[in-house]
């Protein structure tokens, strides 16, 4: 077995170790994406509302 496959095999404990690290990484990355997206959509929503207000007042 090469060093790399051995590293990922983790003496047979691969599921436990990579299951933990994988989900942690996935959650943290997902949270960052969600937070960035949430702010973008909020800015877009507020901008749309502002445009509507402007056009209705004119």
């Amino acid at each position: 077995m090469s060093a790399i496959t051995e590293f990922f095999y983790f003496s047979g404990y691969a599921w436990y170790v990579w299951g933990s690290y994988g989900l942690t990484a996935a959650f943290m990355i997902a949270e960052v994406i969600l937070v960035i997206r949430g702010k973008k959509s909020m800015v877009n929503r507020l901008a749309r509302m502002a445009r509507l207000n402007n056009s209705s007042s004119e």
Binding site: S11, Y13, Y16, S20, T24
Partner: peptide, 13 residues
């Protein structure tokens, strides 16, 4: 055994 490396994210989390 080797699985204890989970400690490095379990305890901080």
């Amino acid at each position: 055994k080797e699985y204890y490396v989970i400690i490095f994210i379990h305890v901080p989390a």
